[in-house]
Write a protein that binds this DNA or RNA. Structure first.
Ligand SMILES: [Mn+2]
Ligand SMILES: [Mn+2]
Ligand SMILES: [Zn+2]
Ligand SMILES: [Zn+2]
Lengths: 138, 138
DNA sequence: AAAGTGATGCAATGGAAGTGCATTTATAAT
DNA sequence: ATTATAAATGCACTTCCATTGCATCACTTT
């Protein structure tokens, strides 16, 4: 039983060939991916399987969903130790208007946000859009 | 020529019956609305007209789009003097997980967000999710 | 081996966003 | 006022992504 399989067991996710492949695919990527990115990477595989795999990963806090405003949901591996629950796990995302890629800025935690009286904050989505480091040439 | 018509002229938007109705509908609402909200409010009207009306409003900075993470884009009237351009106009949005309503917190401007070297920030979307004042009972 | 549970594959559905084109309505020009 | 021009509207159609039902397959347990 290798590292990934142990990790799956820890997360209460059964090991299958497809799941291992998708996990490795995500681990290699430095950017958040869409479902069709995954589809393109595994053309022989069925869309539904990929869809349900990523949903399983999401349920088990292996990946987190990212809504970057493009209308297409993206996914990225959670950080080690992330439970996708507490505010400590929340980080900001950057979407590049040029190359259209979205990346996790895991080092950049969400600042404290004040909400008016009576409002209870449970979750925060913070997306910065602009030009990424690769595209800006700075 | 009444107030709204003057405002339309200022924004370079032709006055039509439908546009006036939709504008008033938005002005009455305290929450952001979806396209189907508008459809339900004007069942006799054609969907496309409503769609293109809201797009026109958006182009002319009469309404702004809100991506609250539900996957359905919402719209709300811009504040007086808003041009939907400069960062001063950006405010945070609150989405209630209970009543599913989304409101503009126009008083709550987006805090300064630091991005890593090489990244250029052009736009920011900040959505807080939780329980709204009406639902929390606090 | 048999039974049971979960994973996968295929087909179909739903919902929202967007487009092309003909027609109506409003504005501008004569 | 009539005509010409341009914009707004209505209808039909399309595209894209997300999601579900159900049959089948694979693995685990007894
Ligand atoms: Mn992330
Ligand atoms: Mn707003
Ligand atoms: Zn880029
Ligand atoms: Zn509420």
């Amino acid at each position: 039983m290798n590292e990934i399989e142990k990790f799956f067991a820890l997360k209460d996710v059964r090991v299958t060939a497809m799941r291992l492949l998708i996990y490795k695919f995500l681990a290699d990527k430095q950017v958040a991916v869409t479902l069709s990115d995954i589809e393109n990477a595994f053309e022989k595989a069925d869309r539904t399987t990929l869809y349900r795999t990523i949903k399983t990963f999401e349920d088990k806090a292996i990946v987190h969903q990212i809504d970057d405003g493009t209308g297409i949901t993206k996914y990225a591996l959670c950080e080690k130790g992330c439970n996708c629950e507490i505010e400590a796990d929340l980080h900001l995302h950057f979407h590049c208007n040029n190359c259209n890629e979205t990346i996790c800025l895991t080092e950049h935690k969400i600042p404290q946000i004040k909400v008016p009286n009576g409002f209870v904050s449970e979750d925060i989505n913070l997306v910065v859009k602009g030009i990424c480091d690769k595209c800006s040439g700075l």
